[in-house]
Computed example of a mutant assay.
Amino acid sequence: MLQIDSLTKRFSIESGTVLAVDGLSLKVSPGEVFGLLGPNGAGKTTTLRMVLGLLEPDEGFAEVAGIRTSSDPFLAKSKLGFVSASDGVYPWLTVREMLLYFADLYGVDPSLAATRLQELAEVMQIQPLLDRRSGGLSTGQRQRVTLVRGLIHDPPVMLLDEPTRGLDVVGVQTIFEYIEHLRSAGKAVVVCTHRLDEAERLCDQFGLLHQGKIRYRGSLSDLRSQTGREHLVDMFVDLMQQETTAGTEDLA
């Protein structure tokens, strides 16, 4: 459903060139939740931007439902849903108006959009909010509306970028329930996060991203076998220490 092959992205800075994403490859199947994990600056968001067609890769490609983002970015985007920590609701529109507006942007037939809206509103429990102005919603309410917006065009692939950032316990639980809904609906899901304890509960497969490169990949049991560590946090600590040791040796 989602295939990423050798994606590479470099950025020029005053001191030279930064390799933000280094030959990244992965596949995500329907009904699978893939955790693309790493600390801030590891290359997670840059990877998502290339998948979304917002950044052109220097090398490699991304395919969504068999469509390369580089060859037909608009069709590829129609197969993607995206949810981030920034809600971006339109304050002067009601929730219903905003969600139907996004459905129209994706070319969803109005009658189908109305039916889908009712179904998703029930799943995410936003029925009482549909005719309220979006600007008057609480943080938790806005979050639920944003989650529905990401699914309004029924995309086969969902990308979630730091979806629990800034949320309280109830908000985090909402994200967990949403991802379980995506899994049961057969969506291919990529979750980018640096919250490794949450990822252990959410994801079926993992890619541990460090300095733009996936260092370990597989199920949690696979990663435990590869690293000899029980938890993702310990695996990343080891990666950081290896980098520090290598840097010290280079200086010596």
Rank of each mutant, 00 (worst) to 15 (best):
V18K: 10
L19M: 14
A20C: 04
D22T: 06
D22N: 15
L24P: 04
K27L: 05
N40T: 11
K44F: 02
M50S: 03
L52A: 07
L52M: 15
G53V: 14
L54S: 04
P57V: 02
D58N: 13
F61L: 10
V64I: 15
R68C: 06
S70H: 08
L75G: 10
G81K: 06
A85R: 08
V89Y: 11
L93Y: 12
T94F: 11
E97T: 09
L100H: 00
L100W: 00
F102C: 03
A103S: 11
G107F: 05
S111Y: 10
S111L: 10
A114Q: 15
L120V: 05
Q125I: 01
Q127C: 05
Q127D: 14
L137S: 10
R142A: 10
R144P: 06
R149E: 10
G150T: 10
I152F: 08
H153N: 14
P156A: 05
V157W: 00
M158G: 01
R165M: 08
G171V: 12
Q173R: 15
I179H: 02
S184C: 04
V191Q: 06
T193R: 02
H194F: 12
D197S: 13
A199R: 02
E200A: 14
D204Q: 11
Q205Y: 12
Q205S: 11
F206V: 05
L208V: 10
R215D: 01
G218Y: 11
S219F: 11
L220I: 13
S221G: 01
T227G: 06
R229E: 15
R229F: 10
M235I: 13
L239K: 02
L239S: 05
L239I: 15
Q242T: 08
G247I: 06
E249T: 12
